[in-house]
Design a protein around this nucleic acid. Structure first.
Length: 811
DNA sequence: GGTTAGGTTTGG
């Protein structure tokens, strides 16, 4: 449906998808297969937009082959194009005679007027979701101030001289606004509130903008959909608004959105990326837009109009301060109806003790505990009232900016708080109070934002430092680690402080360690602390410890090996036959990637969402047909998300769900056969910042399986042995995520090294380190349906794995 | 082509 105006500079902007093949106008016949094809031509005639019913439009245009050689050697170089529906309307607004357009998703029909107009015997029809039109406009006359001017005028002079550019939009300076008109404006944001629910039907955004005329103008935006609101991340961002009305309020002009409103936001930093933030399907972006934004950026940088940005890291937080926090959400838990706890970190450590909030593990979304080192960096943020609703939509792992967060010293009146810390005074609590004053609110930042990129580097650095610290022991420390109690150690030594342990408990239970024989005599439903050694473990082939778990039906599956998955791919490829993709997909071909250059002569059918294409997102999501597992893996280098598909009964279908339904880089995602209702369906990408496995799974009706780690450990102490499971808290135990274990060798190595430390191969029990563990006992049915008591290790982290154990001597 | 809000904090 969309019309995309291409950037005429080298910068970002919509691009015609590279996999589509262009065909010359003269080659078009009624038997042309238009799938995966484009036609390019200059608009030589544009007729009036005709509206046949209230919402139905039709527009006829004629495009002509641009290549003069083709024109000279062929007759049918001009062809009629009929546009229907919204596309016609968009075309009418966005395209001028003289523009060069590329059409895709068209159908070919016989032209009824060939005798009359002497044009091509065929015409192109564009309608529906499949159709897309890319517009590139002759660039504006060279700007004499620009260093590129000479270069431009030589390479593009022919086109420039044919037509003076008529700007489509005119923008009014904020100092020239008159009440009672509808205008387009640019402005630098000096104040903003995230959209909040109004008392009417819409969300309301409130902002104040300024420009070179130094007027500060308040704007109020009402839109029902959040994605239509300005995507403002911080003061200094630049907005461009189309169709806002001016009106007087309190003796000053204000701007309110009106019919046809649209807004695009740009980063306000001089030299920053020119990435337009908008959910509009069709928006105008060219060299002139770029120049206007750059002018506003440098003007704004030279001014002192902007209040200081109150974004500071946790390490710099002062008591009583209000500040904006850029952070990652790790976990969250509702406290009561007016308050939600967000556990966040930004990789820096606040020098103050932070408020400790204890909630039921069952109420927590995300991990319930973290390694002790990480825990020290985590801030508990309490968000109140209207923010609770926003917090409900947040997912652990998301990157957030919390605006106008308050650091409250010594405050301890937290609903539901059970921490013994509540009487302490020397700690900081973080509150996001109710209301929207001072722009209070929460916003999810896209991963592409520069601030998130920086945050991720900080978090990464923490993880690396932390791991370095673990493996960086002096010899004396190593001796302490390895000098374990002798076999004859009696129970009384369990509490001895002198024995070094290589695990740490992070639970809040106030329990004395007990012996395994006592654990065995106690019934299910208990929590015990024990000090034990690891006698043995299963599976020894550690990759088998990685499982797929369905949180819906609780089934646990082995991860299929490559041989099995390869087989499923070739099975899928053996189904052939006619197959019509759904109308929202555009089809094309890519060369099958191969080792030798000569082997790449096979081509694979690919399908891309026309909506994503329209947004220029050609690498985001690919439906791939006919590939082998190996080819699919190779293509992950070029596409963020690959969904393998196969023809089935004339339609596109997913592969058997034993195969991954999605490839993302080195990561593969699986779905639950029992709980999925899988089909190729269109993902709704409107307003979506990042296309991830969750949204794709949801669109495809796939119940996403989670990678988990499952091991059975045999523990021993002086009194007995006990088999326990390591599952729910296995990631915490190894301090590694199961997702990472599934995707990379380094994470797998951590598990190997840890197990080698806890249970050295070939070593006697005397060498094995002692472990402080928290055990939970529970009742479960075994395979024979018999009730039995099971045990799980929880709240425990291995703190001192070491790979240098085998060579303790000086290096 | 309606209504909504119309910056500005003390409080869990």
């Amino acid at each position: 449906m969309p019309v995309c105006v291409l950037s005429d500079g080298a910068g970002p902007g919509a691009q015609v998808p590279a996999h589509l093949t262009m065909i010359p106008i003269s080659h078009i016949t009624t038997s042309t297969d238009s799938s995966g094809k484009t036609v390019k031509g200059k608009v030589v005639r544009k007729e009036r937009l005709v509206s046949s019913a209230s919402d139905d439009f039709i527009l006829k245009t004629v495009i002509q082959e641009e290549d003069s050689q083709a024109i000279a050697s062929s007759q049918n170089t001009s062809i009629s194009v009929v546009l229907l529906g919204a596309l016609a309307k968009d075309f009418n607004e966005a395209v001028n005679q003289g523009d060069v357009v590329v059409a895709s998703g068209f159908t070919v029909d016989k032209s009824g007027s060939v005798h009359k107009d002497k044009l091509h015997p065929c015409k192109l029809l564009l309608s529906g979701d499949n159709a897309c039109l890319y517009v590139s406009r002759p660039p504006p006359p060279p700007d004499p101030r620009s260093p590129l001017a000479n270069k431009r005028s030589t390479t593009l002079s022919a086109e420039v001289s044919t037509k003076a550019k008529v700007p489509k939009y005119t923008y009014v300076r904020l100092g020239d606004l008159k009440a009672g008109s509808v205008v387009n404006v640019y402005g630098v944001v000096v104040f903003f509130k995230q959209p909040f629910k109004s008392r009417g039907t819409d969300f309301c955004s409130s902002l104040k903008i300024t420009d070179q005329s130094n007027q500060k103008i308040g704007c109020t935006i009402f839109c029902e959909k959040l994605e239509d609101h300005p995507k403002i991340f911080q003061i200094g961002d630049i907005v461009r608004m189309h169709r806002v009305k001016t009106q007087f309020f309190n003796d000053s002009i204000t701007l309110v959105n009106t019919f046809g409103f649209s807004v695009v936001t740009f980063d306000g930093a001089v030299g920053g990326a020119m990435e337009p933030r908008t959910s509009s399907r069709s928006f105008h972006f060219d060299q002139e837009v770029r120049r206007t934004v750059e002018e506003l950026r440098s003007w704004s940088a030279s001014q002192t109009i902007l209040p200081p940005v109150p974004t500071i890291p946790l390490s710099a937080v002062q008591p009583k301060a209000y500040f904006d926090l850029t952070c990652q959400l790790l976990a969250k838990a509702p406290i009561d109806t007016t308050c939600t706890l967000l556990r966040v970190w930004d990789g820096t450590r606040c020098p103050r003790t932070l408020l400790n909030v204890i909630v039921e593990p069952d109420a927590t979304e995300g991990p319930t505990s973290f390694s002790k080192e990480k825990e020290k960096l985590i801030a508990n943020v309490l968000v109140y009232d209207n923010h609770v609703e926003v917090a409900r939509e947040l997912k652990p792992g998301a990157f957030l900016r919390i605006y106008n967060l308050r650091a409250i010293p010594g405050s301890s009146k937290v609903p539901g708080l059970t921490s013994s810390q509540s009487e302490e005074v020397d700690h900081l609590a973080f509150h996001l109070h109710g209301g929207t004053a001072y722009g209070r609110g929460i916003r999810v930042l896209p991963e592409t934002s520069p601030d998130v990129q920086e945050l991720k580097r900080t978090l990464q650095a923490f993880s690396e430092d932390h791991e370095d610290r673990l493996s960086d022991f002096s010899d004396s420390e190593l001796l302490e680690v390895w000098s374990t109690p002798p076999e004859s150690t009696k129970v009384k030594q369990l509490c001895a402080e002198t024995v070094k342990c290589c695990t740490e408990r992070s639970c809040s239970h106030d329990l004395q360690p007990v012996t395994l024989s006592k654990v065995k005599r106690s019934g299910p439903g208990r929590v015990h602390h024990v000090r034990v050694q690891l006698r043995s473990y299963e599976p020894h082939a550690l990759h088998q410890a990685l499982k797929l778990y369905c949180s819906k039906c609780s089934s646990m599956l082995d991860v299929p090996d490559d041989e099995l998955v390869s087989g499923l791919f070739s099975e899928a490829n053996s189904d052939s036959g006619p197959c019509s993709p759904p109308p929202w997909l555009l089809s094309g071909k890519v060369d099958a990637p191969g080792d030798a250059p000569g082997s790449a002569d096979r081509s694979l059918t690919v399908h891309l969402s026309s909506e994503l294409l329209a947004e220029g997102k050609t690498k985001e999501l690919l439906f791939l047909m006919g590939s082998t597992l190996e080819e699919t893996c190779r293509l992950t280098a070029g596409y963020q998300n690959i969904v393998p598909v196969r023809p089935s009964g004339g339609h596109l279908a997913l592969l058997d769900l034993s195969a991954p339904f999605l490839f993302r880089g080195r990561r593969r995602y699986y779905g639950c056969k029992r709980c999925s209702d899988a089909a190729v369906r269109e993902p709704s990408t409107e307003g979506v910042e990042v296309i991830d496995e969750r949204m794709i799974a949801e669109a495809l009706g796939v119940q996403l399986l989670q990678f988990v780690l499952l091991m059975k450990l045999e523990l021993r102490d002086a009194t007995d042995t006990l088999h326990v499971f390591l599952w729910r808290d296995a990631e915490l135990f190894f301090n590694v995520s199961a997702d990472d274990v599934a995707a990379n060798q380094e994470a797998q190595n951590i598990i190997h090294q840890t197990m080698d430390t806890l249970c050295p191969p070939g070593g006697g029990t005397g060498e094995r380190p002692w472990l402080d563990l928290c055990l939970t006992s529970y009742r479960a049915e075994d395979d024979a349906g018999q009730n039995q008591t099971c045990y799980q290790v929880g709240h425990t982290t291995v703190t001192k794995p070491s790979s240098t154990r085998s060579e303790p001597g000086p290096a």
